[in-house]
Amino acid sequence: MPESPQPDPTGPDELDAIQSVADDVAHQPSHPAPDPNDAHGSVYDGLLGGDPSHWAFGTDFEDPLAGVDTTIPDGVDAADLGTYCLMLADDALIASQRLSEWTSRAPDLEDDIALSNIALDLLGQARLLLARAAAADPSLVPALPEGSPVPPEDALAFFRSDREFRNVRLVELDNGDFAVTIVKLLLFSSARIAVFEQLVDSRDHVLSAVAAKGIKELTYHRDYAGRWFLTLARGTQESRRRIDAALVQVWPLQAEQFATHEVEARVAEAGVGVDPATVSDAVAVVLAQVFALSGVEQPTGAPMAAVQGRQGRDGMHTEALSRILGELQVVARAHPMGQW
């Protein structure tokens, strides 16, 4: 970056000079293309192409489901399967993005690493599920300029608007303090692991494989959240005050995870997905265990209302989703032809 021009003194000539520098900066492409006629090449040569193993990112499998059986099972509507995959994917993607906001800001280094690890696991689940959604129903994938290198799962993550996201509202809620994050993670991971425990029997090979793997990861996530819940509840007066306040704030959003959407009902009927209402009781038992050990009363707050009968699964969200999508999507949207 060039040094900022000094604003003082500011006579007319100096102002012109400043403007000229600003113009130069504004008109310089941020990544000048390598000049093929330059014998010395450019410092950017080799960033793209060449030996891809130099780079940790941006050289990933072109298709994360390469070699995986993506045949659509008999008796399920491809659009339903695609939409169902979006629901599971969006829950993980938004939860992951929220958790990653803690990176470099967590109470201590170990928890910084833990929250980042959990976010990474969920991002991996989201990627496979988004790729599955795109393979099941290509019409879900937003159109991009011709020649754009953006793969379908990235197009789904970065180029859909808020109303097209199918996540439950729980995951989009702001992180709040550490207690709010722990309560959110406890409620989310408890519900997701219960759904995945049924989803391993899906007739869809991809969903079944993602679930089998996800259970192993979610076990650690739920234990982490449960242990911190217990620690905060039985810690100091201040940590107890915060966990109580967090529970009051977050609890109204948990019921939505078990409200059956019509798409969930149909894919469950087809033996491909899970009706979340069927795991509600099992999750309640797990949570009751945590509350009892923590000496916390079972929360009683009423569920957050649907808006004109619509909730997160229908694309009806809180303002928090628009803001987090702004941050998630801004770079990709500014460079739809970009290679990373």
């Binding site: 891809p52 940790a56 990474l120 696991d121 991002l123 991996g124 996800g214 990861e217």
Partner: peptide
């Protein structure tokens, strides 16, 4: 792990 960022490096290697 599902989110393992090393998969591409393994493939390239």
């Amino acid at each position: 792990y599902t989110g393992c960022p090393a998969m591409a490096t393994m493939r390239d290697d």
